[in-house]
Design a protein around this nucleic acid. Structure first.
Length: 256
DNA sequence: ATGCCGTGGAAACCACGA
């Protein structure tokens, strides 16, 4: 089963790119982030015509997450992250597909830091970590994938010294990520490529993509009962070079 | 160190992103 994650940065503005990538890459399951579309404006029919059923959690202007599946039914298990009824951001949706529980997340950016947005990021991270622990207490294999807005180590940043005070790389943020991993999760892409430089995001400006000045912030976390089923994965880096493309690359894994 | 680009929504600018 090929599972992909892709922060599309506007699902309607990006529809031609998304459909071309679905056709070329043919993932079985896709997690999308940053739909930037209200619930009623999700392009369900165009995605259905491309062979994918979908569930989504939209929001006007910002955020928004979706799960797509090519062959297997999607059994939605949750929409919205538990732990704060006042949090109205659409940043989490979860479903069981082909016996695997898939959590699709868009973790808050958190800049500027320090500040209320950074506080929200850390709170969201705490709630997510608590929910992740809950998921591990069941027997079902789990994939938690999406835009974590975290570079886990210096290896994941083109110039780490420039990012030390950024919300995506501050010590609190990295500590939160490593605290989550310590529950037993496996960072699938890093497990596959322990020493390579891998980026999943490139700024639109300063020719970041051309200079390979990127960040690795889109991740797959695998539960212990799934990690030995991991057979491959990678970044569809060339998609970042297409016309009218997102600033993120699609990332994917293959599990038996 | 920086929002230089890009999207969406409302209003010909602003919020937001990483």
């Amino acid at each position: 089963m090929k599972i992909a994650t892709y922060n599309v940065n506007g699902v309607n503005g990006r529809l031609p790119v998304l459909l071309r990538w679905l056709e070329e890459s043919a993932p079985d399951v896709v997690c999308l982030q940053e739909l930037k579309a209200p619930q009623e404006k999700f392009p369900e029919q165009a995605i259905k015509d491309a062979g994918y059923q979908s569930i989504w959690h939209g929001q006007k202007s910002w955020n928004g997450v979706a799960i797509l599946s090519r062959n297997e039914d999607i059994k939605e298990s949750r929409r919205g992250l538990p732990g704060d009824p006042e949090d109205l951001h659409s940043r989490y949706i979860e479903a069981i597909v082909n016996g695997v529980l898939i959590g699709c997340l868009y973790l808050p950016n958190g800049n500027p830091a320090p500040g209320p947005k950074f506080g929200y990021k850390l709170q969201w991270f705490d709630r997510f970590t608590a929910h992740a622990a809950q998921l591990l207490s069941h027997d079902i294999p789990v994939v938690l994938c999406g835009d974590y807005n975290v570079m886990p180590t210096e290896q994941d940043v083109y110039k780490p010294e420039r990012w030390v005070n950024d919300a995506l790389f501050r010590p609190e943020t990295r500590a939160a990520f490593h605290n989550l991993l310590a529950q037993g999760w496996t960072d699938a892409i890093r497990k596959l490529y322990p020493t390579e430089t891998i980026y999943t995001f490139y700024d639109y400006f300063r020719n970041a993509y051309g200079r390979d000045a990127g960040l690795r912030i889109d991740h797959f976390l695998l539960s212990p009962n799934l990690k030995d089923r991991l057979t491959g994965g990678g970044v569809d880096r060339d998609v970042r070079g297409w016309e009218k493309t997102s600033d993120h690359c699609p990332v994917w894994i293959e599990v038996i």
